[in-house]
Design a protein around this nucleic acid. Structure first.
Lengths: 188, 188
DNA sequence: CAGCTCATGTAAAACGTTACATGATTAC
DNA sequence: GTAATCATGTAACGTTTTACATGAGCTG
């Protein structure tokens, strides 16, 4: 069985409305993309599994391309059960901080570059989230709305934290560069 | 070849000082643990590879247990090169937000529980980071110090952002619960 | 001498990404 | 009609985790 988290994501997408596999992929890349991802090659096998287990079923002819999947009653129950399971926090892996930690080997300037890039990404993230908020206004799923806003807010808080940290870090790194180029380094 | 990021982490750890494989593992779990992780079974094979490639070498007898690994000149060069490579941002996977997004299926109370747990973890994180800061004061590696503080600050910003978001979210969810229990739910 | 921590590794299984392969439908 | 997009899947590959297996050295 695929990881239960992948099943959760796919079942969850289908809980919004019946979709083709392709649409599930787009939903995960688009709407869930701010906090979740599934690779292409996971989604179809997972759907096949879910169908075998009677958690989803095809609507419309399976013959000609597009056949949307819909949750069955069992699927709805399973989704609730999966959502109730404690989230398994993924192991942290932050490439920027890994590099920064060994920043002595890179020098302050290269580190500053790294931080500026991270800052840019956070700003783009904020723009994307603002767009998601706007999209959200004319959404028909009123019951989902408050929960979706919660996830958007989480992204915004995280992005703003990155911005604040980056600005602080750039100041620190600037001082290091100046210190290096300026007065003679008196001690080691 | 193992992923270059694993190599980076292992070479990086050895750049601080020569260590046994076991100590590398402890260093990655401990000091780097706030932003990086490597599983147990990665470290020894990676060390073996690095030794084969002449990037690290054993110090002390390989016979009786403890043999520390040290970076060679080539290893130092390779580490610099790896650090200069652009960080490959990992795909986001936030189990809490995944569950919250489908919160309608869970109900406001279970969601609030989820958020409180996330808040608790953030608070524990802040405590751990404060301890790391304290540890840090009596560190002998003065050159590394400013970079290490940068990574600690990043963790603190992120954790505080989580706290702020969680408090906001709990208010929202509280209103949802109240709304549900209060006036009759008029539509579906 | 029993149990803990230090220490080193291997093997199997699970997980996930990427590339490949194919065809239908729709828009220009 | 031809290019883009929608749609469905498979296979190979690489990565990561987990469990297993072993033994030295120190502590109570």
């Amino acid at each position: 069985m695929r990881s239960s988290q992948t099943r959760t994501a796919v079942l969850g997408a289908l809980s919004i409305e019946p979709m083709t596999g392709y649409a599930v992929r787009e939903a995960i890349r688009g709407t869930l993309g701010h906090f979740w991802s599934e690779s292409f090659g996971q989604i179809y096998p997972t759907l096949a599994e879910l169908e075998r287990d009677g958690l989803v079923e095809r609507q419309g002819g399976a013959r000609t391309g597009s056949s949307a999947f819909a949750l069955t009653a069992a699927g709805r129950t399973e989704l609730r059960a999966l959502l109730a399971e404690p989230p398994q926090p993924g192991a942290p892996r932050n490439g920027v901080l890994l590099r920064l930690f060994f920043g002595r080997m890179l020098g302050p300037d290269a580190c500053a570059e790294l931080v500026r890039d991270a800052r840019d990404r956070a700003e783009q993230q904020l723009t994307a989230l603002a767009a998601a908020r706007a999209d959200h206004d004319h959404v028909e799923h009123v019951e989902d709305s408050p929960y979706w806003l919660l996830t958007i807010a989480a992204g915004e808080h995280a992005a703003r934290a990155t911005l604040a940290w980056a600005d602080e870090a750039l100041t620190t790194l600037g001082a290091l560069t100046a210190g290096e180029a300026g007065p003679a380094p008196s001690d080691d």
